[in-house]
Write a protein that binds this DNA or RNA. Sequence first.
DNA 1: CAGCATCCTCCGCGATACTG
DNA 2: CAGTATCGCGGAGGATGCTG
Lengths: 140, 140
Amino acid sequence: MSVGHTGDTGPCAPDIQATMSCEIRHLLDRLADKWSLLVVELLGRDTRRFSQLRRQIDGISQRMLTLTLRHLERDGLVTRTVYPVVPPRVEYQLTPLGAGLLEAIGPLVAWTRTNRSAIAAAQATYDARSDRRASIAVGR
Amino acid sequence: MSVGHTGDTGPCAPDIQATMSCEIRHLLDRLADKWSLLVVELLGRDTRRFSQLRRQIDGISQRMLTLTLRHLERDGLVTRTVYPVVPPRVEYQLTPLGAGLLEAIGPLVAWTRTNRSAIAAAQATYDARSDRRASIAVGR
DNA sequence: CAGCATCCTCCGCGATACTG
DNA sequence: CAGTATCGCGGAGGATGCTG
């Protein structure tokens, strides 16, 4: 019955201090799952069929692809078009709303790209320190 | 021992088609959890102590705040400064890297803000359709 | 082909108790 | 104050099997 998706943070309080946190919560409700962004990005290139998406998103199960698409459709980010042919053909495409989201993500992806090595370096440093402390803790 | 965090997607394949997906995976590794963004946003305003963060982030447990901060520290987004006083005083602050991330998130937050009503409307429409179909399925 | 239903597993995370 | 250690549950999500 329905998809059973209740994960909707309520409306944001008018409290100015809390507003930003609330926006972020809404944001996360939408795209903090494993697959939504991947789907949006692929559909941003062009319209795709169910099985195309399934093949192009490495590791996604059929179940999760369905759920993700339903979620995106419900949020108005994606449209689902069923062609009454046999075998069935269903195409998904980004709405203008979805396209806007994709644009808004651009800077974030760019940031990730340009800073990945810096992050990796930071991790290496941190882990080296941890290992050292662990070794000491063990008495060596 | 250590934090035990293994969730690091490996380096991205040089395959041009797969690159974008890979970037997104890295992105999600970093901030697709419940709390990281909230912490980053608060630290973006200014330096804060552990218990300040705990109080200002509604619903976070002590354990999760610790884990989140360790994660952010490891990624080089946050610095942790311990003042050798009693009672202990530990301050967290955003690094330039973290500040860059916060900036990159700006457009996304803006998008959420301006489109929340559109999304809510889409959800209402979708749910209305679903309910109707559910009613029919029950035979009414 | 494009799903929905069911079962089952794993682990994220909250609750609680203890420490420097 | 700012943590660490341990236990336990709930739900996200993978595997599998059936349908129009």
